[in-house]
Simulated scan of single mutants.
Amino acid sequence: MPHIKTLIRASFIAAIAAGSLAAHAVDPRDRAFISRGTPEGEVMYKIGKPDHEAFVNNIKGQPEVKTWTYFPHPRDPQTMTIITLRAGVVESIERKIAR
Rank of each mutant, 00 (worst) to 15 (best):
M1I: 10
M1T: 08
M1D: 13
P2S: 13
P2N: 14
I4A: 03
K5Y: 07
T6L: 08
L7D: 11
I8N: 03
I8E: 04
I8V: 05
R9D: 13
R9Y: 07
S11K: 03
S11I: 01
F12N: 05
A15F: 02
I16P: 03
I16Q: 05
S20I: 11
L21H: 15
A22V: 14
A22C: 08
A22L: 15
A23P: 04
V26F: 00
V26R: 07
D27I: 10
P28A: 05
P28G: 11
R29P: 11
D30N: 15
D30L: 08
R31Y: 14
F33Q: 01
F33M: 05
F33L: 03
F33K: 07
I34C: 08
I34G: 12
S35N: 13
R36D: 15
R36K: 15
G37V: 11
G37K: 13
P39L: 00
P39D: 07
P39M: 05
G41A: 15
G41I: 11
E42C: 09
V43K: 08
V43E: 03
M44F: 09
M44I: 09
Y45P: 00
Y45M: 13
Y45K: 12
Y45Q: 14
I47K: 08
I47H: 02
G48S: 00
P50E: 12
P50Q: 02
H52L: 03
A54K: 00
F55S: 02
V56E: 10
V56K: 11
N57G: 03
K60N: 01
G61M: 05
G61V: 01
G61N: 02
Q62S: 03
E64W: 09
E64Q: 10
V65Q: 08
V65A: 09
V65S: 07
T67E: 14
T67P: 11
T69K: 11
Y70H: 05
F71P: 02
P72Y: 08
P72H: 04
P72T: 02
H73N: 12
H73Q: 06
R75F: 08
D76A: 12
P77A: 13
P77S: 13
T79A: 08
T79W: 02
M80Y: 05
M80G: 13
I82A: 06
I82N: 10
I82K: 09
I83C: 02
I83H: 01
T84M: 06
T84L: 04
T84W: 03
L85I: 01
L85Q: 03
R86A: 06
R86F: 05
A87Q: 00
S92G: 10
I93L: 15
R95V: 02
K96W: 07
I97R: 13
I97V: 15
